[in-house]
């Protein structure tokens, strides 16, 4: 049973009088423990697909089932609750809350879950240790380097032990050395913690770290250079407008 099932998803939005359709009947499945990279040219819709799976955007039509929940049918409030339980999001620009320390930033998702403060402390400690930033727990984002900020972002994404960790260009704003550190960290999260990871990247080297490499190209969803075989025998397609 796949962990993530994307069925014939269409995403449209209006740009003036023109209707843009970045996703046009895309289907995809991701299994528990997968490490999937989504690559493609700018504007190909890879981030749109990631955001739909993460529940921060809503599909125009189609079905997205994550851990047995069709998230396209959830109300905005329920979707927020669902995100808190099931999604860990790693942003390209880290998106840490500047007035909170590294520790408090990592703790933030846990405040949405029913757990004691002792349990929260324990989990934050483990997450901070996983990204090797225990010594920086009391530092504010402005006191950290870009790489350290991203590691805090990753700790924040994994701290609640989410169903899926999504990362949108997680190395997009980092130098080569830091990029390597972050990619290694993401691989460890997948292999050592067994977390399912979906990563959007335009960097072929970063994408090659994933076990499954899916490319959005010329309106088609390709896996390892071949069209993806789809659920219910359909062909996954992705059209740029």
């Amino acid at each position: 049973m796949p962990l993530v099932e994307v069925h014939n998803v269409v995403k449209e939005y209006a740009n003036g009088e023109e209707t843009i359709r970045p996703l046009d009947g895309v289907s995809l499945t991701v299994d528990q423990g997968d490490y999937v990279s989504l690559m493609g040219a700018s504007g190909s819709g890879k981030s749109t697909l990631l955001n739909l799976i993460a529940g921060i955007d809503q599909a125009t039509s189609g079905e997205i089932v994550v851990a047995d929940t069709d998230i396209t049918k959830l109300s905005r409030g329920k979707l927020a609750d669902w995100r808190a339980r099931h999604i860990g999001y790693v942003f390209q620009t880290h998106n840490l809350i500047p007035v909170l320390t590294a520790y408090e930033n990592v703790e933030l998702p846990l405040l949405l879950l029913p757990m004691s403060s002792a349990e929260r402390r324990k989990r934050v400690g483990i997450a901070m240790e996983a990204v090797d930033l225990t010594s920086r727990a009391s530092h504010y984002p402005r006191q950290m380097s870009g790489g350290q900020e991203q590691r805090v972002g990753i700790a924040r994404a994994i701290v609640a032990n989410p169903t899926v960790v999504v990362a949108d260009e997680p190395t997009g704003s980092l130098d080569d050395e830091t990029t390597e550190q972050i990619l290694t960290l993401l691989s460890r999260i997948n292999t050592e913690l067994g977390m399912t990871l979906l990563m959007v990247t335009h960097d072929a080297d970063a994408g090659s770290r994933a076990r499954r490499k899916i490319r959005l190209e010329r309106g088609r969803l390709l896996e390892n250079g071949k069209p993806v075989s789809l659920v219910k025998g359909q062909t996954a397609q992705l059209h740029t407008a």
């Binding site: 927020a80 669902w82 999001y89 998106n95 933030l108 998702p109 949405l112």
Partner: peptide, 14 residues
């Protein structure tokens, strides 16, 4: 705006 959107993405309700 971005920070508030981040909080929403994490699961905080509007």
């Amino acid at each position: 705006v971005r920070e508030l959107a981040t909080l929403q993405a994490l699961g905080f309700r509007r």
